[in-house]
Design a binder for these strands. Structure first.
Lengths: 336, 336
DNA sequence: TTGTAGGCGTTATCAG
DNA sequence: CTGATAACGCCTACAA
């Protein structure tokens, strides 16, 4: 491929001059030579080598996107938003699936560092996030945390208020007359799982209800977790009229398993989810859930990251978005 | 960050020696110095700068993944497979969404070239693929086409036989007694759409049925396409007992619209899809469809691409996978 | 076994 | 307005 040297030679100028027109530092280049250089670049179909440029500028215009699993329907829209936004600003993204494994997260951060990405959008459900944060800081890599709420430190991050979301939907279930409410939570170590659980707990308390540990099970945020959760609950023999799930995927699994056990939804048991993944409105019955503004989260995280990278002024380094209750058909009013 | 120079200095060796141990060219390095160098690298938490290395080796260990839209549930699994496989071989991937726009495809190829990715997995539904192929060849970039069948040229590619898949499912519908079968196709310009249509056509012919153009509509591979397709069909006033859709997303849309119009599925109208996206088994009724081995496609495409890049021996440059008919609940037997 | 020196394609710093 | 020239961090003949 043609290099800057070729262009310089054919245009009868120095590479410095070519570099100037490439980078639009056109003060210092006569319009005439500028046009000539442009013409040669055109003829040669010349593309500056970003690797070489990266070596000297220490900028690659590449971002890392670390997430648990693009196959989880919660993430494609986020990934899309991140890519769109990155692209808008002239960046590309390297996609990394970690399966929520802390060792993979660490490895990816190392690799991304050695590839000199300019920054990282980091979504992790594992608790050792703080270790990775230290790693990122040590590497002096700009980063933005996404989706997984993490303590009160002022780390750059974009979140949806899981506590409020879960509080709202639980309150809705309570208002529909349910009192024996089972809960299938996320993994105990996942920070966002704790927040959602807190919202659930608070809603019960608001209604003066005691927490029944027998109706609480831990899940894994996957369909299998919903199925297993229901099996576990059924096995315990406690009655319940509603199952509140910490995400949609588990709600889908729960509904499947409940149907399989002969329950009608929502006539016999109501079910709720969280996330509002695309599937939610096509399952039967359509799932009542809490929508997270996924696209917006990805977009804001990326905008924030790029501001961090380019050292532009920033208002808030922590952005918390409001979730939205989506009422569909999976919760029935019960008469007490 | 520490560079190879720092390591060299602290280990009291030349950078050449450090380079040797980095690259395991340890013939030529005494075990003693090797250990010393390793120790210093450890202490410094040294990571070789891949950008600098890329500049001289002309290898970045990065692949481009170009696809229409990661938000389309058909692609996450492919993306996951590509990433997994790339990772296994020490590569990362840059994700690019094109929205099936030829100009975006071209732009991404250019950018990926200038970033010196080692190769590209390219999924496109636009017909001008051949133009991009020329572009890729001109850039001397290894590439593998994925999913979208393209003429008979011996271009590296991994496909699922859409013709056979559509033939099988249409035959199944016919065997269930349906004779008035509507078809909602993909975009006319999409190569794979043509193949699927051909399979549909052939199945009808096998049964001695004539093609009724009034029952054929063009879609867009999205949910909206299914909805609009049904509306269009209904508007034409022709009777039909089954709707064969060129992909699952349109089948989902079609079912929604049919239900909205008061039809029961499959009692009044049967519906089929294509792809077997995750959602397919959770819609109501569960969708009868054709499964494409997505993960395998992504995996094989990436393996092939890496062989191309690393100039390893290759058996077949074109790989065609067999689709699989998945019978669920959306097709009913009709008595004639 | 080890080191020297040149070069990969750019940008940045000077000087003219 | 233009051009040498020195980096950037690493690899790789070639020498020693």
């Amino acid at each position: 491929m043609a290099t800057i040297k070729d262009v310089a030679r054919l245009a009868n100028v120095s590479i410095t001059t070519v570099s100037r027109v490439i980078n639009n530092k056109s003060e210092g280049v006569s319009e005439e030579t500028r046009q000539r250089v442009l013409q040669v670049m055109e003829n040669l179909n010349y593309q500056p080598n970003r690797v070489a440029r990266g070596l000297v500028t220490r900028r690659t215009n590449t971002l890392g996107l670390i997430l648990p699993d693009i196959t989880n329907p919660f993430f494609p829209e986020i990934a899309r938003a991140v890519e769109d936004t990155a692209n808008k600003h002239g960046y590309n993204i390297i996609l990394c699936n970690t399966d929520d494994r802390s060792d993979k997260e660490e490895l990816y951060i190392r690799v991304l560092k050695s590839k000199c990405v300019d920054g990282i959008v980091f979504t992790s459900s594992t608790t050792p996030v703080f270790r990775h944060v230290r790693q990122l800081r040590h590497y002096k890599m700009p980063f933005v945390l996404l989706d997984r709420y993490f303590y009160d430190e002022q780390l750059p991050g974009v979140y949806t208020d899981g506590c409020q979301g879960m509080h709202e939907i639980t309150r809705f279930v309570l208002e529909m007359g349910h009192r024996e409410i089972a809960y299938i939570g996320g993994p105990n170590e996942a920070p966002n799982s704790m927040y959602r659980y807190a919202g659930f707990e608070r809603a019960l308390k608001d209604f003066g209800l005691a927490l029944d540990k027998e109706l609480i099970v831990e899940g894994n945020y996957k369909i299998s977790g919903g199925r297993e959760g229901v099996l576990e609950l059924l096995g315990r023999g406690r009655d319940f009229t509603a199952v509140v799930c910490a995400n949609d995927l588990m709600a889908v699994g729960a509904m499947e398993e409940l149907k399989g056990a002969g329950f009608r939804i929502p006539e016999d048991v109501s079910v709720t989810g969280f996330d509002d993944i695309p599937m939610a409105k096509y399952v039967e019955p359509k799932l009542t859930t809490v929508a997270q503004p996924c696209y917006q989260m990805g977009e804001m995280a990326t905008e924030l990251l790029i501001k961090l990278i380019e050292e532009k002024p920033i208002e808030d380094v922590v952005i918390t978005l409001k979730p939205r209750l989506i009422i569909r058909d999976s919760v029935k009013r019960v008469i007490q």
